[in-house]
Simulated scan of single mutants.
Amino acid sequence: MFAVDIHTHSRFFHWSPGEPTWFDPLGLTLATLCARLRGLDGIAVTNHDYTYSADRRFPTIPGVEVTTTRGHLLIVGPNPPSRTEPGELTPHEAVEIAHENDCAAIVAHPFRNSDLRHVDAAFDAVELNGKNTEHVEQTRELAAEMDVPLTGGSDAHYPIEVGRAYTLVDADELTPKAVADAIRDGRIEPVVRLNRLEKHLDRLYTRFHASKGYGDGFTANLVEK
């Protein structure tokens, strides 16, 4: 069993959307350091509409957070698309790309800036998002209705956020394909682990997202969260 944060980012902000920046190497280094400190076995790096990976002693799983026409979809596994155009792919198209490349397709933060929960696509899982823990019970109910398993991901943009939520992955080895297969087979369990400071930050995230209008509906041209 491996503890993997399925939703992390290698930069703080969203300048130059859809392409790597000079900050990514440093961001990934800091994220993997914090993951080690929190006792994780690996992280998936899921930047907005582009993949970024680099050789690290700490295991990193390739991924991308695709801005579909209806919300954000995580594609995690051995060969996610290297770049996607925000708002161009439909959820069905994004899921098809994921499956063609032996990846898992995960509905990200389903109750924040997303309509994916209303889409009848072959999603592999739904995410318990570390920045919106007030949605935990709703998300569990949604996963049961959709008959898919739950992943856990911190949605960390700042390294100290890594590990707020993560996924226990039942696999023999920690490889991109093994992680994707475990998600698609339901051999996973989400964990949300917030300390006192993180609980306070979670309330601030909720207020911030509400002030930006990132509620139940999807803002079509939104790239950042």
Rank of each mutant, 00 (worst) to 15 (best):
residue 209 H to R: 14
residue 128 L to I: 10
residue 154 S to Y: 07
residue 170 D to V: 00
residue 143 A to Q: 03
residue 127 E to A: 12
residue 148 V to I: 15
residue 120 D to K: 05
residue 192 V to F: 10
residue 120 D to C: 01
residue 139 T to P: 06
residue 126 V to Q: 09
residue 176 P to E: 13
residue 191 V to A: 08
residue 161 E to L: 03
residue 212 K to N: 08
residue 126 V to D: 10
residue 148 V to E: 07
residue 167 T to Q: 06
residue 160 I to Y: 14
residue 179 V to A: 05
residue 202 D to C: 04
residue 164 R to L: 13
residue 177 K to A: 09
residue 129 N to A: 14
residue 167 T to M: 02
residue 142 L to A: 14
residue 191 V to H: 10
residue 154 S to M: 01
residue 199 K to S: 10
residue 125 A to E: 01
residue 183 I to C: 05
residue 172 D to G: 11
residue 183 I to P: 04
residue 171 A to C: 04
residue 127 E to K: 13
residue 216 D to W: 13
residue 164 R to Q: 07
residue 164 R to M: 12
residue 133 T to S: 14
residue 153 G to H: 06
residue 121 A to Y: 00
residue 133 T to N: 07
residue 149 P to T: 14
residue 144 A to Q: 13
residue 140 R to V: 11
residue 210 A to L: 05
residue 145 E to W: 11
residue 146 M to I: 04
residue 189 E to S: 15
residue 189 E to A: 14
residue 197 L to Y: 10
residue 206 T to C: 08
residue 152 G to K: 00
residue 171 A to N: 08
residue 180 A to L: 04
residue 211 S to Y: 04
residue 178 A to Q: 03
residue 182 A to F: 04
residue 196 R to G: 04
residue 121 A to N: 11
residue 130 G to Q: 03
residue 195 N to D: 14
residue 161 E to D: 15
residue 173 E to S: 08
residue 141 E to M: 15
residue 162 V to Y: 08
residue 191 V to P: 03
residue 174 L to W: 05
residue 130 G to N: 10
residue 146 M to E: 14
residue 197 L to R: 14
residue 148 V to K: 03
residue 172 D to R: 08
residue 188 I to D: 04
residue 212 K to S: 10
residue 161 E to G: 12
residue 214 Y to L: 08
residue 204 L to C: 13
residue 178 A to P: 03
residue 181 D to F: 06
residue 166 Y to E: 01
residue 176 P to K: 09
residue 151 T to E: 05
residue 142 L to H: 09
residue 204 L to W: 12
residue 151 T to I: 00
residue 204 L to G: 09
residue 153 G to N: 05
residue 120 D to R: 05
residue 150 L to R: 02
residue 190 P to W: 01
residue 208 F to H: 13
residue 212 K to T: 01
residue 210 A to V: 00
residue 199 K to L: 10
residue 163 G to A: 03
residue 196 R to N: 06
residue 214 Y to I: 02
residue 164 R to A: 14
residue 169 V to N: 09
residue 145 E to M: 06
residue 162 V to C: 06
residue 132 N to V: 07
residue 158 Y to H: 13
residue 161 E to W: 12
residue 192 V to L: 12
residue 139 T to W: 00
residue 175 T to A: 11
residue 163 G to I: 00
residue 180 A to D: 09
residue 173 E to T: 06
residue 195 N to H: 08
residue 179 V to W: 02
residue 150 L to G: 08
residue 123 F to S: 08
residue 184 R to T: 05
residue 213 G to H: 07
residue 165 A to P: 04
residue 200 H to S: 07
residue 193 R to E: 12
residue 141 E to C: 10
residue 146 M to D: 11
residue 213 G to D: 07
residue 194 L to S: 04
residue 157 H to T: 01
